[in-house]
Structure formats: structure tokens, C-alpha cells
Design a protein around this nucleic acid. Structure first.
Length: 476
RNA sequence: GGUGGAGUGGCCGAGAGGCGAGGCAGCGGCCUGCAAAGCCGUAUACGCGGGUUCGAAUCCCGUCUCCACCUCCA
């Protein structure tokens, strides 16, 4: 079955066919580094990480670009003003938050992009794009001497194509400052420097010193790294308008083919309420990742389809942990039992067909997880009945799936870099107690056996008696 | 006003004309000295009202409710 994805521009599922067979260029709108990352950022980054991993698994060579917007109104607003020597410089502030994003992404197991361009490093490409637009009559410098340059939306009949809106139906923002615009819906490509903005936040241009508008950044950077035509453009649903609409208008008006497919991920709500910077109800990445193991967070964020709204509610992570533990427990158990029986556990690294079909169908992770859990159940049943060879097949499938999804419990990514000396000492002590308990059980002294089990439980060590011996685990 | 989306069992969450996805929680059973883990079984679920059809959660008409976007947003 062919891989299909939902294209927001055409508003339908489309068969995925890369411009160049075997090669995929993917551009994702990264964060504006003006505040700390929250769950929404994690969810978005994870959605494209999964797309990228799946496209790669299906044999494509993916060039994955995710930008960092490191200059914008709010970054300047939150940073030191000229003359404020003690304040934090805008570039320091932007970089500080960029590091927070990188940390959060890394902890979640989001693979680093092929390249992560910062907006401020592509100013020349933006100026070139703006010049082309002026030349073609789709942009103009404001006549008010502000140094602003605007995109002329009325000059581009296709404006509104991405969100299927007609210019006339758009409600002009009540607080919109018309400045030097011909039409309130025109948007800034270049913003002339204002008195209270630091000089370090402006670049020379034919229209005066200033800085780029937000939308032009992505048009310039995607073309710079992926070419004027590339395969997939992704970003949060909230970016569809105006950001992506404007990107599309700019790039196509300048003569670029731009993205072949547009992909948008759903947003995260908290207890049914929209989460946003302005409402201040955000759950930040750092606290969220501290609430549970990062791999469980990843499982949780992956388990809803990427285009659906993900409503976070109290207890959701606990449920995710219980579900994920089924998978983790099966992998540990099967590894242990196959090893003990001397059955070779290694098998080809191939996912079940149904799993592949699920992900081929617009990255249907919910269905993929269903296949994963069904395979776990089948594997457990086979272990129960002693069919170890077929159980080993199921185990290999589970491993393959879990690897594609980036939630392999045995991946060093998730192990907290434990203290091996302490672990060794603990093992000696626990095993001594287990031997003692085994002796008690052999003489049917169950009171003593249970006492040992309870004491270990109090220390956070759980026991499982299996035919081949007793297995212990920490916090199990 | 315009554009798009959603209402599914106690909870989460898929599916999109006919075999009740999957997970969490619950209940019953098997296994176990007892547990744990695991397995098996267990639900007359599709906002409401009509209609089409042999058959509708799925299609059509109407209706209610909720959400998002319409120049800060992942």
C-alpha cells in the first residue's frame, strides 16, 4: 500500500510521491525562542520526528530542516533596551530559550534535524526574496519613511488558498496598526528599525536598516536549504493562518513552487481548554518531562493521531505508563525466558504488515499502537504455552515497532546513566534475600517468605515468581 | 460574518455502510502457597430528531452543543 498523507492545501489524503524518488525534503516551522517550551511544542516536534522516522523506514533519504526564529517583536520586548547595560541582550535571551528547546527535544528522543537554521543567519536570502517580490510588483516599501516593506495581498489573487478564505471575508484585526500599509491585510516582509530597538537587532537593507518579518524567514530558509521546490512543509495548526498562508503567497508570488504537501499537527488543550502563551495555562516541557519518564511522555504524546486535538488531563500519564509497561514487561520477560531456554532471540528487524499499513495511512499511530499491543498479547500467550520459537518472532516484531516509534525501552537514550557500582552492590544484596526467601518457600515457611517480599516492596523492589525463578525489579 | 474540525462504553482513544481497534479502570475465571506478571472471558458505545437501505456510529436532511483559526502562538 502506498504511503498517504493529509495535505492541508488540497484538504484531502494524497498519495505521497517525492519530487525526487528516494529523496524527501521536509521543512518544519520551529519555535520562536521567546519563552520556555511547553507540551504543545513537544507534541509538534514529535509529530514530525515520527513522520521523519517513518519516511526513513520506508526507504527515503530525508533532509529535515527545522528552523529557529531567533528575532521577533517579543524577543526584543523581553530583552534589554538600548542603554540598559545590565539587562539581558536579545540574542542572549533567544539563545537561552533555544537551549531549553534543544534540551526538551533531546530528552523526548526527538532526533536532531539534518540542519537547524537560525533566522538571523539567513538575512541575505530574505533580502533577496523581498527584492524579487518588489520587482514582480507583489511588495512595496511603505511611503511613510518607516523602512517597512509589505507584501501586497491584493496583487496576488491566490492569496487565501491554504485556508480557503477570500480576502473580502477576512475580519481585519481591531488593533491592527495600518502604518504604511495599502491594505490592512498586507503583512510586513521587512520591519524598519525603531528608536527603542537595539542596533544589534537590525541589518542594512535597500529600504533602510531593519529586521525581517516573521513569515519571510521560513520562505527564505526553506528555499536556501531545500530548494525552491520541496516535498513537505509542516507546522502547528495555529500557524496555518496567517503564517503559512503568507509563506505560500510570498514564495509562489516570487516564482517558487514551494511545498508539494502541507502538513499540520493538532494542538494541545489542557482539561478542554486551549493552551497558549497569552492565556498562561501552559504546561511547560520541563515540568511535564519531570512528571513521568520521558519515554512514557513520548508514548503518551504519540498515542493520539497527530492531526487530532490532544487533550491533556489529570492521570493521563499514569495510564500511559501502565500501557507502556505492558510493552516493556513483555520485552524483558521474553528476553529473559528465551535466554534461559537457549532460544536465539535475534530475528529480522521487520514490522508487521498491519503496523506498516497503519503508519502509511497518514501516520495513524493509534492503529499502529493497537497492532503493537496485539503483538505483545500474542507474544505473552506464546510464552505462557511454551512456544518459544514463535514467541521470539513476536518479540522481534515488537522490537522493530518500538524502534520505529522511538520508544525502545532498551535504548540507552532512556537509561538514566545509572551508577553501576551501586547497582552491583544492590544485586548482591537482593539476590541473597531472594535465596533466603526461596529456602523459606521450599520449607513452606510462607510467613517468612512473605516478610522478605514485603520488606523488599517497601524498599521499592517488586518480585515476580516465575517457573524459571524469581525476577526482581526496582519500582516495578 | 467567513473558514475548518469535533461530539463513540466508567475514562482515554481509533474506525467511517454489515465480523464490537487498542489502552486504562472494573468484574469473573485460569495460573500461583498467597501475590505479581501473564492469559481467557466480560459492555446491547457511537449528541438529538427524521430519512435512505435487507442492514447506519458510518450516507442524506434537519437540529443542538463544543472547539480552533480569521495578523502573538507548535
Amino acid at each position: 500500500m502506498a504511503l498517504r498523507l493529509y495535505d492541508s492545501l488540497e484538504a484531502r489524503l494524497r498519495k505521497f510521491e517525492p519530487l525526487v524518488p528516494g529523496e524527501v525534503g521536509m521543512y518544519v516551522c520551529g519555535p520562536t525562542v521567546q519563552s520556555s517550551p511547553h507540551i504543545g511544542h513537544l507534541r509538534s516536534a514529535l509529530a514530525y520526528d515520527l513522520w521523519r522516522r517513518w519516511l526513513t523506514y520506508r526507504g527515503h533519504r530525508v533532509t529535515f530542516i527545522r528552523n529557529v526564529t531567533d528575532i521577533d517583536d517579543k524577543i526584543l520586548a523581553f530583552a534589554a533596551k538600548p542603554g540598559d547595560a545590565a539587562g539581558e541582550q536579545w540574542w542572549a535571551l533567544a539563545y537561552r530559550y533555544e537551549l531549553e528547546f534543544t534540551t526538551a527535544y533531546t530528552r523526548l528522543g526527538v532526533l536532531p534535524p539534518t540542519y537547524e537554521p537560525r533566522a538571523t543567519a539567513s538575512i541575505q536570502q530574505m533580502l533577496d526574496l523581498i527584492a524579487r517580490l518588489i520587482e514582480k510588483g507583489h511588495a512595496y516599501a511603505a511611503p511613510d519613511g518607516s523602512g517597512d516593506v509589505y507584501f501586497d495581498t491584493k496583487s496576488w489573487p491566490a492569496y487565501g488558498a491554504l485556508t480557503r478564505q477570500s480576502l473580502d471575508d477576512m475580519v481585519a484585526a481591531a488593533d491592527a496598526d495600518p502604518r504604511g500599509k495599502r491594505d490592512p491585510r498586507d503583512f510586513a516582509l521587512w520591519k524598519g528599525r525603531k528608536e527603542d530597538e537595539p542596533e544589534s537587532a537590525s541589518w542594512p537593507s535597500p529600504w533602510g536598516a531593519g529586521r525581517p518579518g516573521w513569515h519571510v524567514e521560513c520562505s527564505a530558509m526553506s528555499a536556501r536549504y531545500l530548494g525552491s521546490a520541496f516535498d513537505i512543509h509542516g507546522g502547528g495548526l495555529d500557524l496555518r493562518f496567517p503564517h503559512h498562508e503568507n509563506e505560500l503567497a510570498q514564495s509562489t508570488a516570487a516564482g517558487d513552487d514551494f511545498a508539494k504537501y502541507w502538513v499540520h499537527n493538532g494542538l494541545v488543550t489542557v482539561e478542554g481548554q486551549k493552551m497558549s502563551k497569552s492565556l498562561g495555562n501552559s504546561i511547560y516541557a520541563a515540568e511535564f518531562l519531570a512528571e513521568s519518564e520521558p519515554v512514557v511522555v513520548r508514548y503518551y504524546l504519540s498515542s493520539t493521531h497527530y492531526r487530532s486535538t490532544l487533550d491533556y488531563h489529570e492521570g493521563a500519564l499514569r495510564e500511559a505508563e501502565a500501557a507502556y509497561d505492558r510493552i516493556r514487561t513483555f520485552l524483558e520477560r521474553s528476553t529473559r525466558e528465551l535466554e534461559r531456554a537457549g532460544v536465539a532471540a535475534e530475528r529480522a528487524d521487520v514490522v508487521p504488515q498491519a503496523f506498516g499499513e497503519a503508519l502509511d495511512d497518514d501516520l495513524s499511530t493509534p492503529e499502529a499502537f493497537a497492532v503493537l499491543h496485539e503483538t505483545v498479547r500474542a507474544g505473552n500467550a506464546l510464552l505462557d504455552e511454551g512456544s518459544l520459537e514463535t514467541a521470539a518472532d513476536r518479540r522481534a516484531e515488537v522490537l522493530a515497532m518500538v524502534r520505529v516509534l522511538g520508544i525502545d525501552p532498551s535504548d540507552p537514550q532512556w537509561s538514566g546513566g545509572g551508577d553501576t557500582a551501586a547497582e552491583g552492590a544492590l544485586r548482591v544484596l537482593v539476590e541473597r534475600l531472594l535465596t533466603e526467601r526461596q529456602e523459606a518457600r521450599a520449607t513452606r515457611d510462607f510467613a517468612r517468605a512473605d516478610l522478605i517480599r514485603n520488606e523488599l516492596a517497601e524498599a521499592g523492589i517488586a518480585l515476580e515468581d516465575a517457573p524459571g525463578g524469581t525476577h526482581w525489579s526496582i519500582d516495578g
